[in-house]
Design a protein around this nucleic acid. Structure first.
Lengths: 194, 194
DNA sequence: CACTGTACCGGACAGTTGTCCGCTTGCTGT
DNA sequence: ACAGCAAGCGGACAACTGTCCGGTACAGTG
C-alpha cells in the first residue's frame, strides 16, 4: 500500500520547486494568476516536466505553498469546538479564514481548488474534514440544517476567491454572513419551490 | 454617445462568429472550456483578430451566445414580482435559473463572467438589474437583509457554475436554498464576530 | 462615378500551459 | 563494488490564447 520511498533527488527537486514558487509569489505580491510555471521551473533549476510531475496543476502547487496556513486552519477547529457552541465555532473559524485570506488572497484559491480536486481523486482533504466536523457538530446540536455538507460549503465559500482585492473588506463579511445565516435549520419558512 | 453605425461587413462577421460558436458549443455538448477560439474563427471564416475585436474575452462571446436565455431570465422578473411577494418571486426566479442551468450549464458561466465583467467596465448588465430589482423589492418589504446587493448575489450564485455535471441535481437546490435562507433580515441571532 | 479616409479585416507572432519521450541517476540485491 | 532497472529528469514540442499591424474595402463626398 505504501509503495516505495521517494528518491532523494525527487524530494530535493520538489522542495526547490515549492521554494521557487514561494519566492515568485511573494515577489509578484500574491497575484496567483501571474505565476509563470515555466519561470518557476527555471528558477528552481528543473525542467517543466519535473514541475508538472510533482504538481499536476497550478492549484496543487498553490496548496503546497500554503500548506502551513491550511494546516493551522485545520488545527484551529478542535479548540474552537471545545470553547464554543458548534455554530459559534464555525463563525469564529470562518472569521479566521477571512482574516487569512485578506492578507494572503492565495489561501482561498488554494482551499477551493485543492479541496475540490482532492475530493475527486477520492481522497479526503484535511480541509474537508475540518469543515465537515464543524458542520456535523452543528447538525448534532440542531443548529445546522441537515442537507448541507462540506462540499457545499466549499462551493459557497468559493465566492470569496472571486472578490476583487479592492472590494474584499466590503464584501467578504457580507458573503460569509449570508452563508452562515443560510445554514440555519430550515423551519419550513422558505422552501424553494418544488 | 451613439458613435456611428457599424459597417455592414462587421455586422455580418459578428453574426457568423456567434453562429459558429453556437455550432461548436452544441457539438461539444456544452463543454465551455473546450471552445477553441481559433477553431471558431476558422469555422466562421474570419481571422482571430476579428474574433477578438468583437469579443474581447471568451466570456463576452459566451454571453452573446446565451443572450436569448439571459434576456428571458431578465424579462421574467417583472411578472414574477407582480404575482408573488418579493422573496417568493426571488425563489421562483432562482428556480428558473437553476432549471436553465441544468440543461445549459453554460448559462451559469455566461451570467457569472459577463455580469461580473460588465460591472467592472462600469456598465450595468441587465442581469444585475434583474437581481437588483428582486433584492430591492425584498428589502422594501423587510424580507431581505439590507447589506446584500446584486454583486454579492452573483458572487454567491457563482457556486452553481462550479458544481460538476454529475452532482448538479444533488447540490444545486441545496446551494440555492442556503443562499435564499441567508438573505433573511438579520434578527441579531447570528452576527459574525466583530 | 472616382476619391479618400478610416473602420475593419486577418494572419503572423509572441507568450503560456501542459505533454511526451529518450536519457540519466539513485537505489537495491548480489 | 557493481550491475540492472525503475524512478525520475528535462527540454523539445504541440496546443491555445491574445496582440499587433500592414493591407483591404466600405461608406460618405464632390
Amino acid at each position: 500500500m505504501a509503495g516505495r520511498e521517494p528518491r532523494s533527488d525527487a524530494v530535493a527537486n520538489r522542495n526547490r520547486i515549492v521554494d521557487a514558487a514561494r519566492v515568485e509569489l511573494s515577489e509578484s505580491n500574491g497575484a496567483i494568476a501571474d505565476l509563470k510555471l515555466h519561470a518557476i521551473a527555471k528558477a528552481a533549476g528543473v525542467g517543466q516536466g519535473t514541475l508538472y510531475r510533482h504538481f499536476p496543476t497550478r492549484e496543487h502547487l498553490l496548496a503546497e505553498v500554503y500548506r502551513a496556513e491550511l494546516t493551522q486552519l485545520v488545527e484551529a477547529v478542535a479548540p474552537l469546538l471545545a470553547e464554543h457552541s458548534p455554530v459559534e465555532a464555525l463563525i469564529h473559524w470562518l472569521a479566521r479564514l477571512v482574516e487569512y485570506a485578506r492578507v494572503k488572497r492565495g489561501v482561498m484559491t488554494a482551499i477551493e481548488a485543492s479541496a475540490w480536486h482532492d475530493l475527486y481523486s477520492g481522497q479526503h482533504h484535511r480541509l474537508d474534514e475540518a469543515l465537515g466536523t464543524l458542520l456535523d457538530e452543528g447538525k448534532a446540536a440542531g443548529e445546522v440544517r441537515e442537507d448541507v455538507d462540506a462540499t457545499d460549503m466549499i462551493l459557497l465559500l468559493g465566492a470569496l476567491s472571486r472578490i476583487p482585492e479592492a472590494e474584499w473588506d466590503a464584501r467578504a463579511a457580507t458573503v460569509v454572513a449570508v452563508i452562515v445565516d443560510g445554514l440555519r435549520p430550515n423551519r419550513g419558512a422558505r422552501q424553494p419551490v418544488g
